[in-house]
């Protein structure tokens, strides 16, 4: 049976992990590779590396890091953050990334999705959508959720599927950082509108939040950062409890 995926997300700046990461036994908590391997051992199904650096050399630094990650990691990983050019995607995939996630660049130039799907296949194109509710309507936001647009979440999700996205990574800005659970109503509506896998992001605070997003949000995967980084939730415990609730997970 196809299992629900648990995906830790690592923020990367200039080739190093950011956020205070609190891992016992890691010699260098800023080393993305050591952390990634640790997550893989603990049962993470996939990893997402989100590059938040703003330097001139970022493309090269990221491409080099991807190659070093691929050398060590034996589970799939996605790379995202500021990706807007087809040739950059080509280099990241060539260096061993399994998928890339694109966000603002796809909103600004939707044809990018078609171009990536045609050149590399839908399976490696994850479209990340950040949205929040404005007067009760879910609107797509840009630049990490800072810049609102008039685009409806529902219209955009259907458009990215039609253009060839292989998965949608949906972050609710209303839930992100709250630790009060994922945006399950919106996620469940998304799941009824599109026929590609949906990754829930934003709001993970407890093990029940993960169970709820799989059961009520009808999501295929759940992504979280701080609850894993700060060891508030252990992946092994999380998966064991999900299994006990009848949710298929890889153990």
């Amino acid at each position: 049976m196809l299992t629900k995926r648990i995906i830790p997300c690592l923020d990367i700046k200039d080739g190093r992990t950011v956020k205070g990461i609190n891992f016992v036994g890691l010699r260098d908590a800023g080393d993305p590779i050591a952390l990634a391997k640790r997550y893989a051992q603990e049962g993470a199904d996939e990893l997402v590396f989100l590059d938040i650096s703003a330097t001139e050399e970022r493309r090269k630094t990221l491409a080099d890091l991807v190659k070093r990650i691929a050398a060590e990691l034996d589970i799939p990983f996605t790379v995202g953050g500021g990706i807007s050019r087809v040739e950059d995607v080509g280099l990241l995939l060539k260096n061993g990334a399994d998928k890339v996630s694109i966000n603002s660049a796809a909103v600004k130039r939707p044809k990018l999705i078609n171009e990536l799907a045609a050149k590399f296949g839908s399976q490696c194109v994850v479209v990340a959508i950040d949205a929040k509710q404005i007067d009760g309507d879910w609107k797509v936001h840009l630049v990490g959720g800072k810049e609102p647009t008039n685009i409806s979440l529902w219209d955009w999700a259907q458009e990215v599927e039609e253009r060839g996205a292989g998965e949608i990574l949906f972050t609710s800005m209303d839930h992100d950082g709250t630790k009060n659970g994922f945006a399950n109503k919106a996620l469940s509506k998304l799941a009824s509108l599109v026929n590609i896998p949906i990754i829930a992001s934003g709001g993970a605070g407890s093990i029940n939040d993960f169970a709820d997003t799989f059961l009520e949000g009808n999501t295929d995967a759940a992504l979280a950062a701080s609850v894993f980084h700060f060891k508030e939730i252990e992946i092994e415990t999380l998966k064991q409890e999900l299994k006990e609730q009848g949710i298929p997970v890889r153990i």
Binding site: L2, T3, K4, Q123, G166, D220
Partner: peptide, 28 residues
Amino acid sequence: KVPQVGWNTIFGYNSSLFNGISENEYMY
């Protein structure tokens, strides 16, 4: 949902290619 993305169980082996791999193992 298409594509199928993720870890699914595999079973019913009939080849030495699967030696040492337990029935219902997960593959990506």
